[in-house]
Amino acid sequence: MQATDTATPPGTEAPLPWGSVWGQDAAVDVLRDAASDPSAMTHAWLITGPPGSGRSTLAYAFAAALIADPADEAAEQVMRQVLAGTHPDLTALRTEGVIISIKDARALVERSYFAPSLGRYRVIVVEDADRMVERTSNVLLKALEEPPERTVWVLCAPSEADLLPTIRSRVRALRLREPDVDDVAALIARRTGVDHAVAEQSARHAQRHIGMAQRLATDAEARRRRDQTLRAVLGVRGIGDVVEVAGEIVQAATEDAKALTAERDQAERASLLRTVGVAEGAAVPPAVRAQLNALEDEQKRRATRSLRDGIDRVLTDLQSLFRDVVLLQHGRADGLINRELEPDLRALAAAWSPARTLSVLDRIAETRRNLEQNVAPALALESMLITVSSGRTP
């Protein structure tokens, strides 16, 4: 594993399993010590940080350090297995739906009581632990409170506040640092080879979310859609604009979601048919249809999650837009996220009061919460944009 994302000089070998963790030296030190020193170890951890900060990457690196025995000659191979997600002592829940189901939580709890089969520990990694509703969280409580001696839970979430107090009281929390825009830009330029100006703009627009910055930097169409959406919202004046722009946002998010999931869906379908011996283009036997229907149902749930995530990214961009307006209203031009729109933002800052801008920011935050509760995206966006338009002059 090459150390392209760490402070290790290029061309040198990064230390396993931490080589893919970028910009989180303090957190790595804590987890490395815990993995090597039983007195520093605890049975349940919560890794928090904003989207794109590397929560999951760090969780799997920690799992690899826990499961592999450093005294074993095969330690490096074991670590690579864990990082690839194929080691039998690693159980990971990657959320494909809008929420984590009780069924999935119960399966995790059952798995947590198995003794390690090959490694030093059994590790349960829960990505997006904030997507558990209260009754699902309650399923985990006893397992977190009294786990077997050699089982370790690693939960990932944006913040401690995203989990119930009963969960937070049973874990050791580790907060990740937020990287600077310049640091993310340098990383993206190094990873992708794009021009530094594009990397800087992408890092700024992504608000330091590494994965999103990389996508913006390498996808001109994604950059165009973002710019078009923000300009459309700035141009909203009345109900007609509200309905049109809300529809455009949902349509763009739908197309984006399809682009992200279509290739994977097709590959999964082909793999399933190949596994059960159905030739490409052949009719699907009745005995296989149930399996195919189950796969398609799972893919539909994933598509719903992808669509809502896409709309949430748009709302995050809109929050950055009106945050910039607040800065300008208070005489601050440094630190603008959307510098390319500064003339429009200055005009809006002059036309609105700071209280008006803050009310719009509150409405966007409320819309994000409503979408988490499965409110129809188009209706939620229309309601939000009415708030935006009511502060504009025709």
Rank of each mutant, 00 (worst) to 15 (best):
V171Y: 00
V171K: 06
V171D: 01
R172P: 00
R172S: 07
R172F: 03
R172E: 04
A173C: 11
A173W: 05
L174K: 04
L174Y: 03
L174T: 02
L174D: 01
L174A: 03
L174R: 02
R175P: 01
R175Y: 06
R175M: 08
R175F: 05
L176C: 09
L176P: 08
L176K: 05
R177E: 15
R177A: 15
R177Q: 13
R177C: 10
R177I: 08
E178W: 10
E178D: 11
E178C: 10
P179G: 02
D180I: 01
D180L: 11
D180Y: 11
V181L: 06
D182P: 06
D182A: 13
V184M: 07
A185D: 09
A185Q: 00
A185M: 10
A185W: 00
A185T: 05
A185S: 09
A186F: 01
A186K: 08
A186Y: 06
A186M: 05
A186G: 11
L187Y: 04
L187R: 07
I188H: 08
A189G: 06
A189E: 05
A189S: 06
R190F: 00
R190T: 14
R190M: 09
R190A: 13
R191V: 03
R191W: 02
T192E: 04
T192C: 07
T192L: 01
G193T: 09
G193R: 11
V194C: 05
V194Q: 01
D195G: 12
D195W: 10
H196G: 10
H196F: 11
H196W: 10
A197W: 05
A197R: 15
V198T: 15
V198R: 02
A199G: 01
A199V: 02
A199I: 02
A199W: 03
A199N: 06
E200N: 15
S202R: 00
S202M: 07
S202D: 04
S202W: 01
